[in-house]
Nucleic acid binder design. Structure first.
Length: 223
DNA sequence: CCCTGATTCGC
DNA sequence: GCGAATCAGG
């Protein structure tokens, strides 16, 4: 599998996003974890928290494997990294909390009847006032690169996912047109209303039960 | 053992 | 340039 521009771009993004090499390899498909790491290094991407990288434990006896089992020690250690490492984190000053919490203003009075939304499958969820929004995992704001290729233009890629768009997968990872639904989510759920209906099946009374629609993975092709 | 990233080196 | 093999730490 060749390293096309698109694939290189994915690699960069996912790598900097903190995904492990294995995950990236799986995402890209057709490459091994080693291939991903090798490519990442060739691209100049640098170690992120690596288990084995902290400092220099000992005088590392470099692996001398195949050829020349006994050769005079060749000092092959590479030059130290240049100053180029400073990751310029754009200081969008704010930890700008997603507007989702803004939509739940402190409502002291309880004149508000319990808001319960019922999804297509019959599932319920608590209203905005019933539960404090679990906001803490608010990821830092991050700039995403423009779509590198036109065929991605109208598709919701992995990078486009956020807390308020439907992340229901369309097609399968690794396929050329794999992307995500991208509709506005059913508040409180990771999917839009339609896909909540697919993802959450209400337990219907015996006899009325219908065969479940296909799940995103494992079943016959969706869509 | 599993995982991780780093490094080397034949191709 | 690529990536399997290998290393080393968790």
């Amino acid at each position: 599998m060749a390293w096309t521009d698109e694939r290189i771009d994915q690699l960069k993004n996912l790598w900097e996003k903190g995904l492990t090499a294995s995950q990236i390899a799986e995402e890209l498909g057709g490459v091994s974890r080693n291939a991903v790491i090798g490519k990442a290094h060739r691209l100049g991407l640098k170690s992120r928290p690596s288990p084995v990288k902290s400092g220099d434990s000992k005088k590392k006896a470099a692996a001398v494997k195949k050829a020349a089992p006994k050769a005079p020690p060749k000092p092959k250690m590479m030059a130290a990294e240049a100053p180029a490492a400073a990751a310029p984190r754009p200081k969008t000053s704010t930890t700008s909390i997603p507007s989702s919490i803004a939509s739940a203003p402190a409502q002291p009075s309880s004149d508000l009847p319990k808001v319960v939304s019922i999804g297509p499958g019959g599932f319920m969820r608590q209203g905005p006032g019933d539960q404090q929004a679990p906001i803490p995992p608010a990821p830092p704001r991050r700039l995403v690169p423009a779509k590198p290729s036109p065929e991605m233009a109208d598709k919701t890629s992995l990078l486009d996912l956020n807390e308020r768009i439907c992340r229901w997968p369309i097609n399968h990872p690794g396929e050329a047109d794999f992307h995500f639904c991208g509709e506005a989510v059913n508040p409180g759920f990771p999917y839009c209303v339609e896909h909540c209906g697919r993802a959450y099946q209400a337990q219907l009374p015996r006899g009325v039960r219908r065969p479940p629609p296909p799940m995103p993975f494992g079943g016959p092709r969706v869509r």
